[in-house]
Amino acid sequence: MTSFRTPPAGAFPALRFPDWLELVEDRSAALRKAAETADGQARVPGCPDWTVRDLVAHVGQVQRFWAAAVAAGPASRPPDPDAVGDVTPSGELTAWSARSTALLLDALRAAGPDLECWTWWSASGSPATAGAVARHQVQEAAVHARDAQDAVGAPEPLLPALAVDALDEFLHIGFGSMDGWPHAPARVALVCEEGPAWTLILDATGASAIRVAPGGGPAPGASLTGPAEELLLALYRRVPYDGGTLRVSGDAELVRQLVVWSPLD
């Protein structure tokens, strides 16, 4: 696998379509590797209602859905179930999962990064393209691979460039697609130890993420600072936001409200 180095201080990683494809493949393989060492009925700490088998099946179903969405090209609706096909795992689960990943990657490669397709985030104004799907699927595979690793007690760190890119995608796509912020208007700063930082503007229209220089822009009501991996996992509610390597400054209740509001899939 390509070595994705930590970006220079303050810089965002220049990950592109080929990188996202490689990372989808790599993190999906990491998910399967962890699942192979686990009891299929073991519970997943990050998704306590799921077993490891449920987790692998979910990721495969998601990958098959997005393969059909990308293959359909420009569309105003998600793909029909007939286009997606049967998403019930059959045969040996890891082989079925590997085929799911291959279907997604084949569709993405055939489409190229700029082909438009249906996405659930199109109304946010963010790109609705095969490239955007590839970027989002890195996040999906990476977080769930970490879930599987947690289930077997062997979590591995995320590559810093992946974590920074996934965090940026999460703030712009995940939060950017949310309905109105249900509390008083506020600003929250997310600051990576690797350098990049964002201000998340929260108001009745929803959430808008702005990339800023650390310490730049209007003073936020609260800040959450730490490694990009921990910030991403905290927003996914996989690790505590107020412990470990993460540091809260300002209004801690505002950070709590943000974390419990964040969208999860």
Rank of each mutant, 00 (worst) to 15 (best):
G174N: 11
G174W: 04
G174R: 02
F175R: 02
F175P: 00
G176A: 11
G176N: 14
G176V: 06
S177E: 10
M178N: 05
M178Q: 14
D179Y: 13
D179E: 15
D179R: 15
G180F: 15
G180W: 15
P182R: 05
P182Q: 05
H183M: 08
H183T: 11
A184K: 08
A184H: 07
A184Y: 04
P185M: 12
P185R: 12
A186K: 01
V188A: 02
V188T: 01
V188Y: 00
A189T: 04
A189D: 07
L190G: 00
L190V: 10
L190H: 04
L190Q: 00
L190S: 01
V191N: 00
E193L: 13
E193Q: 10
E194D: 14
E194S: 12
G195C: 05
G195T: 08
G195I: 02
G195N: 07
P196V: 07
A197N: 03
A197R: 02
A197D: 01
A197M: 03
W198V: 01
L200V: 03
L200T: 01
I201E: 05
I201R: 03
A204N: 13
G206V: 05
G206A: 10
S208W: 13
S208I: 15
S208A: 15
I210P: 00
I210F: 14
R211H: 15
R211C: 04
V212F: 13
V212D: 08
P214T: 14
G215W: 09
G215M: 13
G215T: 09
G215I: 14
G215F: 11
G216K: 06
G216Y: 12
G216P: 08
G217A: 15
P218R: 15
P218V: 08
A219L: 12
P220Q: 11
G221L: 10
G221K: 07
A222Y: 00
S223H: 01
S223T: 11
T225F: 02
T225H: 09
G226Q: 07
P227D: 06
P227E: 06
P227S: 06
A228W: 06
A228R: 00
A228P: 07
E229S: 14
E229G: 12
E229R: 11
E230I: 02
E230T: 08
E230N: 06
E230S: 08
L231Y: 04
L231E: 05
L232Q: 05
L233A: 03
A234V: 11
A234E: 03
A234L: 07
L235D: 02
L235Q: 08
L235P: 00
L235K: 11
Y236D: 03
